[in-house]
Design a protein around this nucleic acid. Structure first.
Lengths: 106, 106
DNA sequence: TATCACCGTAAGTTGACACTTACGTAAGGC
DNA sequence: GCCTTACGTAAGTGTCAACTTACGGTGATA
């Protein structure tokens, strides 16, 4: 989770993720889409894989990569924790106020 | 946006964000919560402020910081872009299949 | 089995960044 | 007009990470 956030914070890896979002691609295909060397992309792919953001499928000498939406969803849930609990507290505060109003009315 | 992702990827800044999520706190109060020096926290606060993740309010010599949920929400929307469009394509594909079924039935 | 295609790994370099200590600055209190 | 309080900023340091070039390993192919 921590690793996933750091992984997706890197612009190059974001671009890679978008490339393999809908269809799997080989490491070579991905590397051709960028102007950096192939090893650089290979290292990025390792980071993404260890962060659980992509899956790797081997076929012969080739390796196919594909995005893993579940992990991205996990990231969203993580971000929700920051403000959703804030909302929950607002909600709880509102309910508390409601109860005290009724107590006052009685 | 890019800056916000990098900012929130740092564990220490996540902790700071949680501290000022519900109530504003001074830079000094925040610094006391950690075991690093005050300047270190001050620098983190600058990063968070430039990323739009916190607001700064000055009162005398003190500076109050508070989380900005809208920006965090922006981050969520950014993450949605990764898989939501994938869902939209699935939906579009399903509808397309539906139409071709009807064409086949006629 | 020799070779080629496809890819990861090793090692080194450079820049970014999370810290430190030292210093500067602005607002109140006496 | 000081002196304290509450900060940010400057400058230096160590570490990590994104790249490079060079090399190794594994699977198809003739």
């Amino acid at each position: 989770m921590e690793a996933a956030l750091k992984a997706i914070a890197e612009p190059r890896r974001q671009a890679i993720l978008r490339l393999v979002r809908d269809e799997e691609r080989t490491a070579g295909e991905i590397a051709e889409a960028f102007e950096v060397t192939r090893p650089a992309i290979s290292q990025h792919l390792s980071v993404l894989r260890e962060a659980g953001l992509v899956t790797e499928r081997r076929d012969g000498t080739r390796r196919f990569y594909r995005a893993r939406p579940e992990q991205i969803k996990e990231l969203q849930r993580f971000l929700e924790e920051f403000w959703q609990t804030g909302l929950e507290r607002l909600k709880a505060a509102a309910e508390w106020e409601e109860r005290s109003k009724r107590r006052g009315a009685k």
